[in-house]
Write a protein that binds this DNA or RNA. Structure first.
Length: 87
DNA sequence: TATCTGACGATAG
DNA sequence: CCTATCGCCAGAT
């Protein structure tokens, strides 16, 4: 468990229902601008322990390969999705 | 220690 | 909209 990992988890865990962040923002908030890929790596491992569905790609697109699950979880918090994009 | 693999980002074509 | 590149970082092998 590295410092970055802890911070990333903290940032994501601090999000409120209906709030949406991008991988880039999470990385920056965690103190590692440009480490968006690492964020994805981390969320992939802790997906069940963190509200990862509140994190989307930089252009607002739902997580590639998880659109259905992602859209479902977001809808649960009042966020509707359209054609793979968070609305 | 070296390499590979992603739930990524930005840019270029 | 798509692919190709390069830069980025953690964790697995």
């Amino acid at each position: 468990m590295t410092e970055l990992t802890r911070r990333v988890l903290a940032v994501v865990a601090a999000t409120r229902p209906g709030e949406v962040l991008t991988y880039g923002e999470v990385a920056a908030e965690a103190g590692a601008p440009g480490a968006a890929r690492a964020v994805g790596r981390i969320l992939a491992r802790h997906g069940t322990e963190v509200p990862w569905w509140r994190v989307v790609t930089s252009c607002g697109r739902l997580v590639p390969g998880h659109e259905l699950e992602h859209a479902s979880l977001l809808a649960r918090e009042g966020r509707t999705c359209e054609d793979g994009y968070v609305k």
